[in-house]
Design a protein around this nucleic acid. Sequence first.
DNA 1: ATTTCAATTTAGAATAAGTATAAATCTATT
DNA 2: AATAGATTTATACTTATTCTAAATTGAAAT
Lengths: 131, 131
Amino acid sequence: MKTINLTTQRQAVYDIVRDAADHPTAADVMNRLVERGHSFAYGTVYNSLRYLTDKDMIRELKLGETASRYDARTDDHQHIVCEVCGKVDEVTTAIPEEWLARVAEETGYEVEGAHIVVEGVCAECRSKRKK
Amino acid sequence: MKTINLTTQRQAVYDIVRDAADHPTAADVMNRLVERGHSFAYGTVYNSLRYLTDKDMIRELKLGETASRYDARTDDHQHIVCEVCGKVDEVTTAIPEEWLARVAEETGYEVEGAHIVVEGVCAECRSKRKK
DNA sequence: ATTTCAATTTAGAATAAGTATAAATCTATT
DNA sequence: AATAGATTTATACTTATTCTAAATTGAAAT
Ligand SMILES: [Mn+2]
Ligand SMILES: [Mn+2]
Ligand SMILES: [Zn+2]
Ligand SMILES: [Zn+2]
């Protein structure tokens, strides 16, 4: 379970996700692969994304939209979504351990972690809004 | 936009969600409707769930599973999912305002709120585990 | 170099959740 | 009773993703 086999297609998919600044969906990845001159089967892109996710080279994000997004940052962090333009940005401010401890106490669960999606309006949309 | 028209089907769907202790999916709601002797069209259940959500009588939850779940508690709260049995419980401990403020500062967003899904192992699964 | 065999890719079918459509039915008002 | 708007129904459609079975690849083993 340690070895990683990066085929041409897996490497190309990984490159797209690594180079992306916007947490692309599988469909985004497909389009960008075509832009770079590749033409892999639909299923291969999904297989590659899953493979890379399993190997912890990328993360799959479920942000409450219909399609999953993918992220080459695998360190623990959260996300913020602009309610106006849909942009997704990083949140690195860590959730207080103390809050998680209180949740553990409240629920009786052993808490492993949390997925947080913050919602708001990004700076650009805010400045456009007050016209 | 103020009046609420609770038809038989909408009331029955609402009753299911209100009586549920487990944040049911649309499919769960459909099964329980049948158990109670109803037989509404597939689309009607989805329409009713959306109608009730729009009227703020219930909430739709996107917890990162394939199907949405529904919740008759509409006050601000979060959820915790058991990684072992999949159970979903309530989290009423509020997110620290201070954390949201730091996220706003970090990202430049105007923060409106946050959806949090805590992950962990519930008390029952924990006790079963150490056999 | 050729054979072999597992891993991978491919094309396309299948699935799951939810939405859209258009006809039928219900319900309140004239 | 007639009308009209809202709702329900059955069914078709969409979207995102997974599954399947055949074809291809590529690294050993001969
Ligand atoms: Mn990220
Ligand atoms: Mn709840
Ligand atoms: Zn924005
Ligand atoms: Zn459990």
